[in-house]
Computed example of a mutant assay.
Amino acid sequence: MSEFKRITPEQAQELLAKGAVVVDIREAQVFAAGHIAGAIHLDNHSVADFIRAADLDAPTLVVCYHGNSSQSAAAYLVGQGFSDVYSIDGGFELWRNTYPAETAQGSAE
Rank of each mutant, 00 (worst) to 15 (best):
A48I: 13
T98K: 02
E10N: 12
I36F: 04
D57N: 14
A104K: 07
A20R: 00
G106H: 08
S83M: 04
S72N: 14
A32S: 14
Q71A: 06
P9C: 05
A101W: 09
D89S: 14
W95Y: 05
A74M: 05
A54K: 02
T103Q: 07
L15K: 06
E14M: 11
M1P: 15
I40H: 03
R6C: 14
S87K: 02
P100V: 10
W95P: 01
V47E: 04
T103M: 08
L15T: 03
Y65G: 12
Q71Y: 06
N44K: 08
A108T: 11
R6N: 14
S87I: 05
F4M: 05
A12L: 04
A33E: 15
D55N: 14
F31R: 00
A48M: 11
F50G: 03
H41I: 07
H45V: 11
Q29H: 11
I7Y: 03
G91H: 00
Y86M: 01
S46P: 14
A73Y: 03
I25D: 00
G34K: 01
I40T: 07
Y65C: 09
A48K: 07
R96F: 13
A12V: 05
R96D: 15
L56Y: 10
Y76V: 11
W95N: 00
I7W: 02
A20Q: 02
E10T: 13
V47T: 08
L56E: 06
L16T: 05
A39Q: 03
P9M: 02
D49Y: 08
L15P: 02
G19I: 09
T60Y: 06
A32D: 10
H45I: 10
